[in-house]
Each structure stands twice: as structure tokens, then as C-alpha cells.
Design a protein around this nucleic acid. Structure first.
Length: 619
RNA sequence: GCCUCGAUAGCUCAGCCUGGUAGAGCGAACGCCUCGUAAGCGUUAGGCCGCGGGAUCGAAUCCCGCUCGAGGCUCCA
């Protein structure tokens, strides 16, 4: 079958000079040089049989891909050498002219037809810069991004699965008791929502001096103040501990990769133009958008036996980078640079993969719970191919029944992604936006793609099935969820707060008068030695003011020291959770805090112990 | 990427419509008060009104362009 061939290059510039006529029917033009900057050059070979329908399709394809790379200047460059079944020159020229006329909202130029031209060209370094396609009458084929094409055609069937394993129509399901699930289902299936205010966590992240935008960087790259860094460190440590307990081995892989490395190219074709690119010494590098390929390339170099499986590799990626569309970045919900715990398990067969999948499901639930969320705080979605469902109903129904409430189901007629099964926990925020936290996938494709091998029982090499799990989701997103949850508490009349183990200050000591400072200092030191984050408000402010400041900082325990306490064993402790003042000895207080933070990591205070010594972070 | 909105003191914002000395609260510095569970009092310092251009005798204010940011759409491996 004949088809037009196109090689499309996104260029910094092209400069060409018509040298001499190549064929008799060449266009009559002035042989002048021309230079174009920031342009997409499409080398086009028109084949025998191409017609105006093909011209139209070709232009649609070109303009579509140019939209993706954000360029609207196009140079059509007749280039016979791409084909051996060329159309006649007159047909070719008329097809090219049709393409030029069609426009598609682009600024189009055309290099002269039929001339030998010398040219100088500089092609850009991003993965989508080079792109070839073949357009034929009747069908279309795109050699570099079939997957993308397929994605828009992919057929999904949406359902609700109840804990008894029954599937229900979304339209007929009674959401009365499952409002967040309804939001998620509508969000996913219909993509309908409309709000026009920033989500409440944005104010909170600033007020609590956790994080802020950094205008001197790129959008979606946040700065984290001491409080934010502390909270992130604690979450990171917690998730890592849990993954290591489960059996993960922590590794570290590079954050940038060569775009032209053979293992990268096929990955790119699925997910184009969504990464940061870095040029260095002629290499075109991109910043990783996940830990997958780092770990896959590592596993490829392992000599593995089936006896070594399942093998779990884990990395806390600080950072992963995704160049999300600017309009999609909001506070800490979605970032362009984020910290993703990413754990892969290589399994010898589907049986082992399923077993492992169950373990990781439990791990993820445990981690989410430790982070201060419970089943009521998120909605699960589970996605699978029809084939996988038919063969593995038991596994899917088991997961749903463990969650103990209905979940959203997406079923695909055919496998499009590299996985056959995926679930995720979604948090639905105050504005009805859903975002995924934990997730796990069964990947049946990348073992082969990356040439990862193990030797099976019969001494034959096999590709493992790979599970992709993040037990918590991005660390920044966990903070977003905790703050949104706090905002919800506030809105509904409860006191907002962070889990005690994550609070930058757990206890604050306030003297009634400066003369008690000495006593306060000794007390602060004593509590601090028990691995509790305690600070001292040594400013000469009124007690009322100090209490107020501590309350607006969400500090859980406030100890006021005056005449009475300095001469007695018991302390007056204001517990923010109840709002009441209670009397406890120091040891009793320490025990209470230890009990509530048991099993969770501890880090020392990340600011001066003295409130008067701290800069105000006004953002 | 498209659409909408925004940018004034360290922070949050008023002033802009209707052009004529740059405002408040918080925070900061200094001083007074010496205080018992959510804001004690006073004084002072602090501004290229995002950048560039235009019309005007005169611009924070009106017009044009740009940059940056936010929200929505789309997207979200």
C-alpha cells in the first residue's frame, strides 16, 4: 500500500539554499537562501497513490503533534529520498500545495520543489523533536506513537463493585452513603467539576511555614521551610521503614537518563513531552519521571534465579520530575518535582505475583493508616483488563472485600497499558478533586522490554512479572491530604491539626513571667531528652498572646509555668485536642506522648528551641 | 497549550471605576507594662505601586505589549 512518508523535526533553526534544479518540472523560483527559527521541519515524500485525503490527514497529524510541542511554525520540505515509490512530480507538487493551503492554524512555509538544496539544521533535544510517520489513504499509522493514538481510542467500562464482588452500573448505583465515591466516579468517568478557588491547603502550607512557591524556579517546584522539611523527612523515613520491613531493598538510581538509550525510546513513545530535558556535552538527557527504568536497568544486570524471587527493589525518589501542564499545578497536590517512594517486585509467575500483590495491598493500607488516614478518608479504584478479570476474579474480589466498601471499577476491553491490573487509593478533597495516593500494578510487559531475566526451574531464561507499588504516593501529596483533611475538620467545627508524630513542635513551654525562664529551660531540656520536640516561648509577651500563637501553630501541648508550677510536681498542660487544661507530672506527659507516637519515627526539632531566635516566615 | 483573573511595605490587603502628597492591619526594631490559658500599650523604620512603552501639564490609577503567578479547561504513565 502506498503512503506518504514524513520525517518531522523540531528545530532551533533551519537554513537552506536552492542550488540547482533537480528535475525539469522544478518550480520557477529565485534561488535565495532562507532561514527559519523555532520551526518544525517536515520532510515529505509523496508516494504514488497519495491524494488530497492523504494531504488532509497528514496535516492533521502534523498539526496535532505540533500542538503537543507548542510550536506553530511549519516548513514543508519536499524530500524524495524517503521513498522508492514516489508519486509523479506534478502530483507530488499539487499534494504539497494542498497541504500548504490547508493551514490548520499554522504558519506554513514550503521549500521549493524539484531543487537540489543545501541546508543547515539544528534539531532540538527533546524526545518528541524527532518524529516520523506514514500516512496512507484509508488508514493511518504513526510509527512513533501508536500507543498515544490507541490511548484515545481505548475503551473503558466503568462500574461500582461492592464488597460481595458484584458489579453495578454507575448510573444505577445508590451513592447515598458513599458521597466521596460518587465524586470520584463522576470525576473519573465524566470529568465534570467546577470550582474557582484555591484549595484550602495552599493557605495552610504557607501559614504553618511548611512550603511555598518559588518564583525563581519553574512552576511546580516548591521550597520547603524547616517545618516542611521535617515533616517530609518523617514521612519518608516512615514509608521507607515499612517497605524495608516488608522486604524491600533500598537502592539509588540516577535522576537523568540518555533519551537515545535504546531502553528509553520505547518508554517515551507512550508518554511524550512530559519531562524536563537537559542537554550536556551533546547528550540529550531527561529527568526521570519515575524510578521504574533506573530499577529495571539495575535488575537487568542482576543474575537471578527463580529462587531469588520475588525480588523487591525500593527507592525513595527525591525527585521524580513530570512536566505537568502549568494549569494543572496547584499547591502540593500536583508538582513537577516530587518525592515518590517506588517499590518494584520481580515475580517468577502470575501465582507469585498475585501473592505478592496481596502483601503489598496490606502494606499500603498499613502505611496509609500510619499516616493518619483511614478507610473513610479515601476511595479505591481498581482497573483491569476484561481477560484478567475473568481469570482472577478471586483476587479482585478479595481486595474489594478487604477495603470493606464499594470501589470504582474501570475495565478495559483490551490491554493498552503495560499492566493488567492496577488499584489506587484516591483522596477526594474539599473541592471535589480526586488524587491518587497508594497504588500497585501488575506489569506484564516491561520485564521483556528491559530484558530482565531469571533462570527458572528448568534452567530456561524467563522475564519476570513486575509489580509497581507506591505504598503512600508522593510524599508532598501526603502532606496535601493531611492539610486538606485538617481544613475539612476546621470547616466542620473541629480543631485542625497534624498527627502528633508529624507536628514540628509537639510541646511548647510558656513562662508567665521572665523570672520563670530558668525553670522553663530546665523543663524543656528534660522533655527534649525523651525525644520529644519541645520548644520554649522566651519572648517577653503576655501569656494570652503566647497561647494564641501556640494555638495558631497547631501545637498540641502547651505548658504554662508560673509561681504555682515552679513549686509543685504537677504541670498545667493545655491539650489542644480537648481544649482543656489538665494537671500531669512531666513523666505522665512524656508517657502520654510516647504512647501516641509509638512505632513512628522521631527526628529532633528543626528550628531553634527558643521562639525568640526564629525568623518569622511570612508567606 | 487554551480561557479567566491577578501583581501596591517582609506578609495580608485597601486605594484604581472618577488621574493631582502612598494607606491600614499584622510582622520587625526600640521603649513601657511583668502579665495565669486565643491578640497589653506607645514610638520608629520600612514602597522603582512587576517590567517596558503610549496618550496626558501630570499616572499606582487610562491604553498597548511583556514577564511572572493563580484558578478553570485539557491532562494526570
Amino acid at each position: 500500500m502506498q503512503s506518504m512518508r514524513i520525517l518531522q523535526l523540531h528545530c532551533d533553526y533551519i537554513e537552506f539554499t536552492p542550488v540547482k534544479k533537480e528535475i525539469k518540472s522544478a518550480e520557477e523560483i529565485e534561488p535565495k537562501s532562507k532561514r527559519l527559527d523555532e520551526v518544525v521541519v517536515a520532510f515529505v515524500a509523496v508516494e504514488d497513490g497519495d491524494n488530497s485525503d492523504v494531504a488532509k490527514r497528514a496535516m492533521n497529524e502534523i498539526s496535532e503533534s505540533m500542538k503537543k510541542i507548542g510550536c506553530s511554525k511549519l516548513l514543508l520540505y519536499p524530500y524524495a529520498h524517503l521513498s522508492s515509490k514516489l508519486a509523479s512530480p506534478s502530483t507530488a507538487l499539487s499534494v504539497l500545495k494542498e497541504m500548504e493551503m490547508q493551514g490548520n492554524g499554522l504558519e506554513i512555509q514550503r521549500a521549493p520543489f524539484g531543487w537540489t538544496k543545501s541546508y543547515k539544521i539544528q534539531v532540538k533535544g527533546h524526545p518528541l523533536a524527532e518524529h516520523s510517520k506514514t500516512i496512507s489513504a484509508g488508514e493511518e499509522k504513526e510509527s512513533t506513537s501508536e500507543a498515544l493514538k490507541a490511548e484515545s481510542k481505548i475503551q473503558s467500562f466503568w462500574h461500582i463493585m461492592t464488597t460481595d464482588g458484584k458489579m453495578h452500573d454507575i448510573d444505577k448505583f445508590n451513592f447515598a452513603k458513599h458521597q466521596s465515591l460518587e465524586v470520584l466516579a463522576k470525576y473519573e468517568a465524566a470529568k465534570k467539576r467546577s470550582v474557582d478557588e484555591p484549595p484550602p491547603h495552599v493557605k495552610l502550607m504557607k501559614k504553618l511555614a511548611i512550603a511555598d512557591y518559588e518564583p525563581a524556579s519553574d512552576a511546580g517546584n516548591m521550597r520547603f521551610f524547616p517545618n516542611g522539611r521535617l515533616i517530609k523527612s518523617l514521612i519518608e523515613r516512615y514509608v521507607t521503614e515499612k517497605v524495608v520491613e516488608y522486604g524491600g531493598f533500598e537502592v539509588e538510581t540516577p535522576i537523568m537518563y540518555d533519551s537515545h538509550h535504546p531502553s528509553m525510546e520505547s518508554y517515551f513513545n507512550r508518554f511524550p513531552a512530559r519531562q524536563y530535558n537537559v542537554n550536556s556535552e551533546g547528550k540529550q538527557l531527561f529527568l526521570r519521571f519515575a524510578a521504574c527504568f533506573g530499577q529495571f536497568l539495575m535488575a537487568k544486570d542482576f543474575q537471578m534465579s527463580y529462587r531469588n524471587l520475588p525480588l523487591r527493589l525500593y527507592e525513595l525518589t527525591r525527585y521524580s520530575f513530570r512536566r505537568e501542564q502549568s494549569g494543572e499545578l496547584v499547591g502540593l497536590r500536583r508538582l513537577r518535582a516530587f518525592t515518590m517512594p517506588d517499590c518494584h517486585a520481580m515475580c517468577k509467575d502470575m501465582e507469585q505475583a498475585k501473592e505478592e500483590f496481596r502483601k503489598r495491598f496490606d502494606l499500603s493500607r498499613q502505611v496509609i493508616k500510619g499516616l493518619g488516614l483511614d478507610e473513610a478518608d479515601f476511595e479505591m479504584a481498581i482497573r483491569f483488563t476484561e481477560e484478567f478479570y475473568n481469570e482472577n476474579k478471586d483476587l479482585i474480589e478479595e481486595l474489594v472485600s478487604k477495603i470493606g466498601k464499594p470501589v470504582l471499577v474501570e475495565m478495559w476491553k483490551d490491554r493498552f497499558f503495560y499492566f493488567v491490573l492496577k488499584w489506587e487509593f484516591n483522596y477526594v478533597d474539599n473541592l471535589g478533586k480526586a488524587s491518587a495516593l497508594s497504588t500497585d500494578q501488575i506489569d506484564v510487559e516491561n520485564g521483556k522490554r528491559y530484558n530482565i531475566e531469571f533462570i527458572d526451574e528448568t534452567n530456561k531464561p524467563q522475564n519476570p512479572i513486575i509489580l509497581h507499588n507506591s505504598p503512600s504516593g508522593a510524599v508532598e501529596r501526603v502532606i496535601y491530604v493531611l492539610l486538606e483533611k485538617a481544613a475539612k475538620d476546621q470547616r466542620e467545627g473541629r480543631k485542625p491539626g497534624l498527627p502528633l508524630w508529624l507536628a514540628p513542635t509537639q510541646v511548647r513551654v510558656i513562662p508567665v513571667k521572665p523570672e520563670f525562664l530558668d525553670y522553663c529551660e530546665k523543663l524543656t531540656e528534660k522533655i527534649s531528652q525523651q525525644d520529644i520536640r519541645v520548644d520554649l516561648d522566651d519572648r517577653n509577651e503576655s501569656v494570652g498572646k503566647s497561647i494564641r500563637d501556640a494555638e495558631t501553630d497547631w501545637i498540641r501541648y502547651i505548658i504554662v509555668i508560673g509561681e504555682k508550677e515552679a513549686n509543685a510536681a504537677k504541670l498545667s498542660i493545655r491539650d489542644r485536642k480537648t481544649g482543656a487544661v489538665k494537671e500531669l507530672t512531666t513523666d505522665e506527659l512524656v508517657r502520654e506522648i510516647k504512647k501516641e507516637t509509638r512505632g513512628m519515627p522521631f527526628l529532633k526539632m528543626n528550628m531553634s528551641r527558643y521562639v525568640s531566635k526564629r525568623p518569622q516566615i511570612m508567606v
